[in-house]
Design a protein around this nucleic acid. Structure first.
Length: 283
DNA sequence: TTCCAGGTGCATA
DNA sequence: TATGCACATGGA
């Protein structure tokens, strides 16, 4: 994909492998705002970027362009990935066409851990609202937005504080996990193999197999992960199953078996495809 | 009113 | 190892 880094922006010269709506609304990121048409503001940790659609692509404005070059995974060739997936499976052919501009973001590990603990048995709209509340409650005031809280900032909250915010039964998970992560270098985990990483993440309160997969995928770019939630279970049984399965461990095993090191990509194209069809009441 | 949402932890057999 | 249940909340 063609792009260049200018003084004040990254200029994306492509609309096939980069689409702001697909990237932000496919469920991998919770802090963003639509500011009209295909233009968005998004936040990661204490950083902000604006995506503005241009005639031939998009401009990404930020005061940390290198961070967002990596964040948007700009060096990866997605056209090859889509091609490979399309050839493997007819549903993927439709899904990669539908969400052609999706890219798997490289997000901040701590933010992903807390956000996906909040995601358990919750809906995306509510997750977004809770993550925003958490940032406003104890994140650093950056002037025009609030940064996602640091470990130290979250340590100041009690379980009751989190419950009042609306975290419900997840309040104690967040509290316990933040305490456990105190002083932990989360970047170091990126050197672990996928299975080792998942094993460590699963020791955190509120992190089971599905949430661990999401963290490994969206914070550590582990593409041999296939998070299986209620939507993926529906997708599997609609398009992939030879027999109906409800055991998510088994569903994951089958899907990773099929898509191997492209699992993370496949999962996200399918997730976006199915949810948008459902939203628009299309079978 | 009931069901559902990017599930997890825990008790029980 | 596998199954069943409770858990907060708000929108459809």
């Amino acid at each position: 994909m063609k792009y260049e880094i200018l003084a004040d922006r990254i200029s994306i010269l492509d609309k096939d492998d980069f689409n702001s709506k697909h990237i932000l609304e496919c469920g991998q990121i919770f802090r963003y705002r639509n500011i009209g048409e295909n233009n968005y503001i998004l936040f990661s940790g204490d950083k902000k970027a604006e995506i503005i659609e241009t005639q031939n692509g998009y401009d990404i404005f930020s005061n940390d362009l290198l961070y967002f070059e990596n964040f948007f995974d700009l060096k990866t060739d997605y056209s090859n990935i889509k091609q490979t997936l399309s050839c493997q499976n007819s549903t993927l052919a439709l899904a990669t066409k539908f969400g052609c501009g999706i890219r798997i973001l490289n997000q901040a590990p701590f933010e992903m851990i807390i956000s996906f603990i909040i995601s358990a048995n919750n809906n995306i709209k509510r997750i977004q609202s809770l993550v925003e509340k958490l940032s406003q409650k104890c994140g650093t005031d950056m002037g025009d937005f609030f940064a996602f809280p640091t470990e130290e900032q979250l340590l100041t909250l009690t379980i009751d504080d989190l419950k009042v915010m609306g975290m419900g039964f997840r309040a104690k998970y967040i509290f316990n996990t933040v305490k456990k992560l105190q002083g932990k270098n989360l970047q170091e985990l990126s050197s672990l193999k996928t299975n080792e990483l998942l094993a460590y993440l699963s020791t955190l309160d509120g992190v089971g197999p599905k949430v661990a997969d999401c963290i490994a995928l969206f914070a550590y770019h582990k593409m041999d992960c296939f998070p299986v939630d209620t939507w993926v279970e529906k997708i599997y049984n609609s398009y992939f199953a030879t027999e109906i399965l409800t055991n998510r461990t088994q569903i994951r095993k089958n899907l990773v078996g099929q898509f191997s090191n492209l699992s993370g990509y496949a999962q996200q194209y399918l997730f976006y495809y199915k949810r948008e069809l459902d939203k628009n009441h299309i079978e």
